[in-house]
Amino acid sequence: MRNLTALLFSGGLAFLLMVIAWQFTLGDAPMLIGAAILDNAVKEVGAANLVTSVVLGYRGIDTLGEIAILFTAATATSMVLGSFAMTDEASETEQREDGSILGSSVRLFFPLLLTLGLYIIVHGHLTPGGGFQGGVILAGAFFLPLLAIPGRSINHGGIALVEGFSGAAFILIGLTALFSGQAFLQPLFEHGVIGHLFSAGSLPLLYIAVGLKVGAELSGLLANLAGISSHAAEAEK
């Protein structure tokens, strides 16, 4: 029965894809919304990076949804990993460096990655990049020491604090607009001069919130997984 339905489904899907491949023509896609955004984004939102004006301006609610998805995934993962994730006793027992080269280069890279991540987040409304990309780099910065120095623990309380407040900040900025009589997530403040660091209203604030949220989320998730693997290693001994 299961094989039959699988066959039916695959056949149907293949047919569907064939229809699409047969009918689809490239190169003449209508640009309704795209053209409207290209024409008006700079005037309406004031961000030099047009992608940012879509991500945080026109479709801010989708971005809120995306960070909620990331948060849900992290929460669900820690639900599955469960009790392992929250016990730090074993991690404090031994901290050893896997060689001095690894240790020194981590100490060298950590501030560099931190600076790069923060730069990309803060300039999200000016240059390609932004909260999601910068946040991933931040998470990388905090995860490197865990890789180089096994057994080292990460500050779960601090991560939870950043995670909670940065997510809340995004929503609170949106709610501030709502309670001042505008729409939810409507950009606040003046646009300023296009291309300046302090421009595009509240968009940079939103991107900082996104960046910190993504960074905290991913480093928490990686730390959980690292905790599991070091537990497993100890259990093997």
């Binding site: 609610i61 809120l64 909620a68 948060f71 309380g157 939870a160 604090l161 995670e163 909670g164 407040f165 997510g167 809340a168 929503i171 609170l172 949106g174 709610l175 709502l178 729409a183 939810f184």
Partner: peptide, 24 residues
């Protein structure tokens, strides 16, 4: 009518903060 977005914003806000509320 705009207040209906609270039905999305509020549970998300509290969900983000719930671990911190639990800690205190």
């Amino acid at each position: 009518m705009n207040s209906i977005v609270l039905n999305i914003a509020l549970p998300l806000l509290v969900a983000f903060l719930l671990p911190l509320i639990h800690a205190s």
